[in-house]
């Protein structure tokens, strides 16, 4: 199914269906990850691949229209390169250990340590979280920095051309759905549970699949639904761009600050054991705080992305976007 969807995305000339297919691709691969027992990854993929990124693409489509510019040049060189890469990948697959084989090197070296010692060293049931947030916490800090960078980039490059404050342009922020009662009512009912769910995912990451990344995306999607239903103006009264920017920086700083506190306490960077005398409690505390940092940054950046895109739509003819 993944293959079929991918080919269909490349094949279709209609951008709207391409985006929808991309969303389906995200959903299918999320299910695929579930089937492979990688629930945390699946969760992220469902939230990002099937949710947020198609949404951003749809907003872009509103700006550029749904038809692909037809080009007549046939990029044979590109095709050849893709074929070579594909063959290489298949060659690489050849000597891989069989799927699920117990003596594959990936299962024999560091992984057993994570699986067996995590309970004693970190004391939380979700091993994925303990790898992400403690054993390899520095990678996660880097990822948060990547997201922060993306937010900075979008703000620098997209907000720059529209220094006029968005609020002064009533046309840009009117919702297309003001006359649609049912979505508005359903949306109003759904938004609070979505936000609650985000918080649950945020703080439950130690026990089940979840954590800051997913929670941030889910929280942001609640706000995005609100924007779609009630317009940018209304949303901006609650969350303004400068606040989001400030909070996005704070999230990253919070994460880093945990590391610095560990440094000041005489341990290595991000060694949570420095936080409290009891090391299990210390690990808990450390993970909780950094996940919060992750969640805040991710939520703010995703909202900023969405606001940046929506804010740039010069004029919204009613219903056009919905018709595709």
């Amino acid at each position: 199914m993944l293959m079929v969807t991918a080919v269909a995305i490349a094949w279709t000339r209609h951008l709207f269906s391409a985006v929808m297919l991309a969303s389906i691709y995200g959903l299918v691969s999320a299910s695929f990850f579930v089937a492979m027992d990688a629930v945390d990854v699946a969760f992220t993929e469902a939230a990002v691949g099937a949710g947020i990124s198609p949404l951003l693409m749809l907003v872009t489509l509103r700006m550029v229209g749904a038809k692909e510019a037809t080009s007549h040049n046939h990029p044979y060189a590109a095709l050849i390169i893709v074929a070579v890469v594909g063959v290489l990948l298949l060659l690489g697959e050849q000597d891989l250990p069989a799927f699920g084989s117990a003596d594959a090197p990936a299962h024999g070296h560091v992984a057993p340590h994570y699986l067996q010692e995590s309970a004693a060293e970190i004391g939380i049931p979700n091993v994925v979280t303990s790898v992400l947030a403690s054993y390899r916490a520095f990678d996660t800090l880097g990822e948060v920095a990547v997201i922060f960078t993306a937010g900075i980039g979008v703000m620098a490059l997209l907000f720059s051309d529209t220094p006029v404050h968005l609020r002064n342009l009533p046309n840009t922020s009117r919702s297309t759905m003001e006359d649609q009662v049912i979505p508005r009512v359903v949306g109003k009912i759904l938004i609070p549970p979505i936000m609650l769910f985000a918080l649950y995912v945020q703080f439950h990451g130690e026990y089940g699949p979840g954590g800051g990344f997913q929670a941030g995306v889910i929280f942001a999607s609640a706000v995005i639904v609100y924007v779609m239903l009630f317009g940018l103006d209304a949303a901006m009264q609650v969350v303004s761009v400068s606040w989001l920017r400030f909070l996005a920086a704070c999230g990253l700083l919070l994460y880093g600050a945990v590391g610095v506190v560990c440094l000041l306490a005489g341990k290595n960077f991000l060694d949570y054991n420095a936080l409290l005398p009891d090391h299990i409690a210390a690990q808990h505390l450390g993970i909780l705080v950094i996940e919060l940092g992750v969640g805040v940054t991710v939520a703010c950046v995703v909202m900023l992305l969405f606001f940046a895109f929506v804010g740039r739509i010069p004029h919204l003819p009613d219903h056009e976007a919905r018709d595709g």
């Binding site: 990948l89 060659l91 697959e93 990936a106 070296h109 560091v110 992984a111």
Partner: peptide, 30 residues
């Protein structure tokens, strides 16, 4: 996948034992 580790020193120690496989060569190429 081939070595089970991401650490460079560790990789350097473990790669020779699997260096015959095409996978490692492909990894090198990529």
């Amino acid at each position: 996948i081939m070595t089970g580790t991401l650490n460079m020193v560790d990789l350097a120690q473990r790669i020779p034992s699997v260096s015959e496989s095409t996978t490692v060569l492909v990894a090198f190429a990529f």
